[in-house]
Write a protein that binds this DNA or RNA. Structure first.
Lengths: 206, 206
DNA sequence: CTTATATACGGAACGTTGTTCCGTTTTTTA
DNA sequence: TAAAAAACGGAACAACGTTCCGTATATAAG
């Protein structure tokens, strides 16, 4: 599992404990921001998030000195949640089903990030570290599911998780021509492609 | 709404002419906007464009009621310029060379549009008509060059201009991982792919 | 429990944006 | 040349991200 959101660094040397209200507000802010970003996109006003969290504007900027810091925090939290879903799914389903379900989980995660792709490519240095974190957490998650599925013989070997994540992200990113359904279908098709010609081949999809 | 006197209509030229200073300012604005957008991206402040054009802010909004209208106008102007380059290149070079040069022209056009792709996918209805205009002007331009090259036997047939434009646009769009050189090289490679196995096959590229 | 103080809080205030409004200036026309 | 229509310029407004600081409060010490 990943760190709790507001934890203090490991080598915290005997300073005061984090105040309870501070921790509470930080959690409320992350939760409010997640909801607002999903509804109104990452360009939503900071004041709206503060209000939804029941907190003053100053408090937002105490925890997140810049608006982008809040976006980054929410993004990392959701990346963590997505990565942590992999072992859970692997434990609850057979390898093929686990892979399929995780990819759908990933697609939903990407699709909800309206406007974030734009922010990433805006050149703002605040988002520089995000792609790295993205890979560090998600590639191992997918890798493990992929390995299990290959070992079980339900998908072919030889595919790079990075390529799959990138392709799925592009397919799942919403645009004005195509709705979110399109992304889901195309990624399902992609996974079917992995299955094609595997050792244990089920009947071809309709 | 208020239609006490006839508005300026395409077929109606008996009414007042467009004032000379208005036309001059409109041209200056388009030119200034093009320069500023190329330098600072499409998010550049309106005041900066007004100043560069030697014009007040009110004048900008007289010609372009919304900021996005100015972006759209510049975009359409540059799409036109890119489309109009096709017949000129076709007249000045052999079909293969014309195709190559036009694709490079197109890549430069796309690469200079930093931030516009983001605006397009922002869901703002102001940009709804842009992709349609894009296709209407650029697809015929590329189609003609492609047909000529196929007839001359220097590229293979059977490629959809829409697919090529889309692929080249994606390849040429600058991102933080890869510089503009990457896009140019990949599109050159794409065009080399069109050449592969043509009737008149030149020696393979280095 | 009381007190002291580091910490966190709230929201007014600042600078920058897109956009609107209207008095003034300029061009066109009679 | 003078009236009218059109366009101009920039002050003014609203909304945004961000900063600042007086006030409130949780925690540690006595």
């Amino acid at each position: 599992m990943s760190d709790k959101t507001g934890e203090i660094r490991p080598e915290n040397e005997g300073k005061r404990r984090v105040r309870a209200d501070a921790q509470r507000n930080l959690d409320a802010l992350l939760q409010a921001a997640m909801a607002v970003f999903a509804t109104a996109g990452v360009d939503a006003p900071v004041r709206e998030i503060a209000e939804k969290a029941g907190v003053g504007i100053g408090t937002v900027y105490r925890h997140f000195p810049q608006r982008s810091d809040l976006i980054v925090a929410v993004f990392r939290q959701e990346v963590d949640a997505c990565a942590d879903a992999a072992p859970a799914l692997a434990a609850a389903h057979d390898p093929g089903e686990a892979l399929t379900r995780w990819m759908r989980r990933y697609v939903d995660f990407i699709a909800a990030k309206r406007g974030l792709g734009a922010a990433l490519h805006s050149g703002d240095p605040a988002y520089e570290a995000l792609p790295g974190y993205f890979k560090d957490r998600l590639v191992p998650a997918l890798q493990s599911l992929l390995d299990a599925a290959v070992t079980a013989g339900v998908v072919r070997a030889g595919f790079d998780p990075v390529d799959l994540l990138r392709a799925a992200a592009v397919l799942a990113s919403p645009s004005q021509d195509m709705g979110p359904e399109h992304g889901r279908r195309m990624v399902d098709l992609l996974v079917d492609g992995l299955r094609y010609g595997a050792r244990l081949s089920p009947p071809p999809p309709a």
